[in-house]
């Protein structure tokens, strides 16, 4: 038995925060994921993080440009953006996660910020 798909009007509104990982050495997606979650849990706490519905989209991570997207509930964009900006290091190396844009749909994010030729 499968769950019925939720009607479009009842689905939660979401946004995609697109950011660049600026560091000396390129980082892997799972390293970025751990760093972001640590920062979000530290800054917002478990309760707020659960409401923010955060999900790092690993399928569109651009390893060459070090560009990633994180899905977030539309009313928690500012909180998550602030938490992302507080990431200071990954694996002991200094990094800056610079948010470059915000998209309403995955397709919009891919069209504007992710070039298919980079994969």
């Amino acid at each position: 038995m499968k769950l019925n798909p939720i009607p479009p009007t009842m689905r939660e509104r979401k946004r995609y925060i697109i950011f660049d990982v600026i560091s000396e050495k390129p980082k892997k997606i799972h390293e970025v994921n751990i760093a972001i979650w640590n920062s979000i849990l530290g800054f917002l706490g478990e309760s707020e993080a659960s409401r923010a519905r955060i999900w790092l989209i690993s399928s569109i991570f651009n390893e060459k440009k070090q560009r990633a997207a994180v899905k977030v509930s539309h009313d928690h964009v500012e909180n998550v953006r602030a938490a992302i900006s507080l990431v200071r290091e990954i694996n002991g190396e200094r990094v800056t996660l610079a948010v470059i844009g915000l998209a309403g749909t995955m397709l919009g994010a891919q069209k504007k910020y992710f070039d298919p030729e980079d994969y």
């Binding site: 600026i22 953006r81 992302i84 900006s85 507080l86 200071r88 800056t96 948010v99």
Partner: peptide, 17 residues
């Protein structure tokens, strides 16, 4: 250091929080 720098929009988000 350059890694301590953030974009203006990040500061605004932070202050809003």
């Amino acid at each position: 250091s350059i890694y301590d720098m953030r974009s203006p929009r990040e500061y605004i988000s932070f202050l809003q929080t």
